[in-house]
């Protein structure tokens, strides 16, 4: 995983609640056995019409959303299926962070494991950012070490992230290698566990 410090760039706005992972990456694209190359299928059914042409009214197809690296979305983003293909496709498309009032639990974890930041801000802050992002020349900055979101128009907010995840992301560590250092504790638990549930 690449270490993350500061992200600066353009935001795309998706003002919808309860965007589910079936929409983020429809099931017909889950059959690949690689982690990469999912970006072209992101939001497929919303993004393209039956003939495979871009739908002009879909948020990400608007000219002002092209090239965005931060997505601002509504409540409960990423609900539904646990498919990690959802953050893979968002990341592959070019998003490095999603800002929303709330996230579904599994989706949030899946983002963190892939170096993509799920940032929860208050509904008011998210609405303000959605408006601000419509202004030409708008730029957002997400500062992970300082846990802040700022823009070039004077917006400022801070966000929460568990210190464990922050450390992991800032350093770009591989979680499994860290856990393997606890081998002794795992072994001890397995011995104790044999007594408790050896049935």
């Amino acid at each position: 995983m690449e270490p993350i410090q500061c992200l600066t760039g353009k935001a795309a706005v998706m003002d919808r609640s309860n965007v589910d992972t079936d929409q983020i990456i429809p099931k017909q694209f889950l059959k690949r056995i690689e982690r990469t190359g999912f970006g072209e299928f992101l939001f497929y059914d919303w993004r393209y019409d039956e003939k495979g042409n871009e739908r002009a009214d879909f948020e990400l197809n608007k000219p002002e959303s092209k090239g965005a690296n931060i997505l601002i979305a509504g409540d409960n983003f990423g609900c539904g299926s646990s498919r990690e293909h959802a953050p893979w496709s968002l990341y592959d498309y070019g998003f490095q962070a999603v800002i929303a009032p709330s996230f579904a639990d599994i989706f949030k974890n899946n983002c963190l494991k892939n170096g993509m930041l799920p940032i929860a801000l208050s509904s008011e802050d998210v609405s303000r950012l959605m408006k601000a992002a419509e202004e030409p020349g708008h730029q957002l900055t997400v500062d992970l070490p300082n846990q802040t979101v700022t823009d070039n128009k004077g917006f400022q907010a801070s966000f929460d992230i568990h210190p464990y995840w922050k450390e992991m992301l800032v350093n770009g560590w591989d979680e499994i290698s860290i856990t393997l250092q606890y081998d002794e504790q795992i072994r001890q638990h397995e011995q104790k566990d044999q007594v408790v549930s050896s049935y």
Binding site: R35, S82, I106, K113, E175
Partner: peptide, 15 residues
């Protein structure tokens, strides 16, 4: 439910 990275983590560490 867990994501695929967590599946890998459980396979490797059972935790």
């Amino acid at each position: 439910g867990i994501g695929t990275s967590e599946v890998e983590h459980v396979l490797a560490t059972q935790t």
